[in-house]
């Protein structure tokens, strides 16, 4: 039997959901509506005049090979950031879970990088890999490898991925660690008595039991890679060399705030809204089927 609470009248239920509705309306529906509205116009920067162009902005964007290339860049970047932030986090959580002594210190140290803002993380990594004074690039030079992310697109991509994933490992670690702690000891001990070694127990028992957390993190990390990595890219590469690290969000910024082209920028925001919506639907429809709650 499902438990249901029934309210008498409308006032109380409306009041109870009002905060959520108001916040969504002010911070999501209103701006999203504005973006959709503005995407139909080409305005001048000062808002003195604007012309209705219908779907012209979308036509302009989708006809631009460099915009289409940004989709691919975004896909590569998001997948790499998600993989590079989730797998090490899971590994560290498994190790931390086995620790008996000193796990508190270990955990605290691992959580620290999360407190570093993306732009600051970007500057830190840029400093280490700076082609002239960077510590890491100097060592690479000693080993005979000429590091130059200013001209080499692959190296630039690698650097922004690592810088974006680094702080995120802490966040993922926290969730994985909590999930691992909640796996019932009795199940693991039963498997151990049956002779299953550690990694076997991990893959057949622990991993399936923490899939809800892993799934949650997958969604959250993809959204992170899409929207919150702006600071890292802006400080490290500015989208270059050429356009190898220009992801969709970065292009929204450069068209809107460097190019003052608010029509195109709004149209890109709308496209981004649909892409992320679509991705979330796909994740819930297909990936979630493999999740055991």
């Amino acid at each position: 039997m499902e438990k249901r609470v029934t309210f008498k009248g409308w006032l109380l239920p409306l009041l109870l959901i009002a905060p959520q509705v108001i916040i969504s309306a002010v911070f999501f529906f209103y701006p999203a509506g504005q973006a959709i509205w503005q995407s139909l116009f080409i305005p001048d920067p000062f808002g003195l005049s604007s012309q209705f162009v219908g779907l012209g902005n979308f036509e302009f964007l989708l006809g631009d090979p460099f915009y289409r290339a940004a989709f691919l860049t975004t896909a590569v970047f998001s997948i790499l950031v998600t993989v590079c932030s989730m797998i090490p986090a899971l590994f560290l959580a498994v190790i931390a879970d086995r620790l008996i002594k000193g796990s508190g210190v270990y955990r605290t140290m691992l959580i620290w990088p999360y407190a570093v803002a993306p732009a600051v993380a970007g500057v830190l990594w840029l400093f280490m890999f700076n082609t002239r004074v960077g510590v890491v690039s100097w060592y690479l030079g000693q080993l005979g490898y000429d590091w130059n992310h200013v001209l080499n697109g692959g190296e630039a991509m690698g650097l922004v991925v690592v810088a974006s994933a680094w702080g995120r490992i802490s966040y993922n670690f926290l969730f994985f660690f909590a999930a691992l702690q909640s796996v019932p000891r009795s199940v693991i001990e039963a498997a151990a008595i049956d002779g299953a070694h550690f990694w076997r127990r991990f893959f057949t028992i622990v991993l399936p039991l923490i899939t809800p957390t892993a799934f949650f993190l997958l969604v959250v990390n993809v959204v992170y890679a899409f929207f919150e990595t702006f600071g890292v890219i802006h400080t490290i590469t500015g989208g270059g060399p050429q356009q190898t690290t220009t992801i969709l969000v970065y292009k929204v910024f450069s068209d809107g705030f460097v190019g003052q082209d608010l029509g195109s920028s709004s149209a890109q925001s709308v496209i981004l809204l649909f892409v992320v919506g679509l991705l979330t639907v796909i994740q819930f429809k297909y990936v979630e089927k493999r999740v055991h709650y």
Binding site: L151, N152, G239, G240, P241, Q242, V258, D261
Partner: peptide
Amino acid sequence: GSFDQIRGIIDEELEAIWSGD
């Protein structure tokens, strides 16, 4: 017009020249 952004495009294309692409 949009010259800040056009400079960005020129930078990208010049990088393609320096790298030999």
